[in-house]
């Protein structure tokens, strides 16, 4: 099964070769803690192409979450800029939806699944019929139509994360941000959720930025992978993933290209974790990065 060039070059961008949705330019974030400055993100510049799924992968503690919080407008960068579709991000913009790692803490325990998905739409004063349509559609697409009236804590971890994904989809974002979304679920659920994301991103025609420490996951899901250096983060390398757009947990991962890309990213990260940061904390992150 070879890469199908027709499906790879699918972005219909006749005039502009790269139809950029998000541009991160010279992003830097320094925390001040007890009079000491800690540099989490040093200098990050990259672009997200509309319609693509991009993964940011890096050793643990490489400022991935900080980066995502800056992009989503939850955290103000020390310097640099984030521009979504031409508009600088100053606070959380309407065009972004975030799926957090801690699914159990990002859902309202006092609301049913339906109410959780509906709340952001309700606040926007969207009409009742439109809300119902969007909520039903997104719950259907994540396979939770039958659980609409359950409470989040009645569901398994994987199902709770599906609710969070449904909420993000119903919000109709241009860009879906996911912060280690599958780090807290078991392996089988994780594979299911990965395939779910691949399916719904086409169905809802949404650009996705997903942060992960899992190299296999990043290659399996992405059109493009951004590899971060060890902290303070910079972009170590940005690579396109020329795998067929139709991914499959078994056959895609059997492809020689997959193994090749995996090995390449693995070496990059191993070099990052090993050579430049000799302290104990980062050798543990090497173990995490190489766990799969």
């Amino acid at each position: 099964m070879a890469a199908d060039p027709a499906t790879i070059a699918m972005n219909p961008t006749p005039s502009n070769p790269r139809d950029v949705l998000l541009r991160v330019d010279g992003l830097k974030k320094t925390y001040s803690a007890q009079g000491r400055d800690v540099e989490a993100v040093r200098d990050l510049t990259f672009e997200l192409v509309r319609g693509e799924l991009t993964c940011i992968v890096g050793p643990s503690g490489s400022g991935k979450t900080t980066l995502l919080r800056c992009i989503s407008g939850l955290l103000e960068p020390t310097s640099g800029s984030v521009v979504l579709d031409g508009a600088p991000v100053k606070g959380p913009p309407r065009g972004m939806a975030v799926v957090f790692q801690e699914y159990g803490r990002s859902l309202f325990a006092w609301m049913t699944v339906r109410q959780n998905v509906e709340l952001p739409l309700k606040v926007q004063k969207m009409s009742k019929s439109e809300r119902t349509r969007l909520v039903d559609q997104s719950l259907e697409s994540v396979g939770l139509a039958h659980s609409a009236d359950s409470y989040p804590w009645q569901l398994s971890g994987g199902m709770q994360q599906r609710v969070a994904i449904a909420r993000a989809l119903a919000y109709q974002p241009q860009l879906l941000l996911m912060d280690e979304p599958f780090a807290s679920v078991d392996a089988q659920t994780r594979a299911d959720l990965e395939d779910l994301v691949l399916r719904v991103r086409h169905q809802f025609d949404v650009t996705v930025l997903l942060v992960t420490h899992d190299i296999d996951e990043s290659i399996y899901l992405s059109d493009r992978v951004v590899v971060l250096s060890s902290p303070p983060s910079t972009v170590r390398e940005e690579l396109e993933i020329p795998l067929p757009r139709r991914r499959d947990q078994v056959t895609t991962k059997e492809l020689p290209e997959f193994a090749h890309l995996r090995a390449h990213v693995f070496r990059l990260i191993k070099r990052e974790s090993g050579a430049e940061t000799p302290d104990a904390h980062d050798s543990s992150s090497l173990a995490t990065a190489g766990e799969l």
Partner: peptide
């Protein structure tokens, strides 16, 4: 919860709605 608070911010649930749906509950 800080994650719930971030959730509200990123989905632009603020002001009275935030008090009613997040803080009070």
């Amino acid at each position: 919860d800080s994650v719930l608070s971030d959730t509200c911010r990123s989905y632009r649930v603020h002001g009275a709605a935030r008090f009613r749906h997040l803080v009070l509950r």
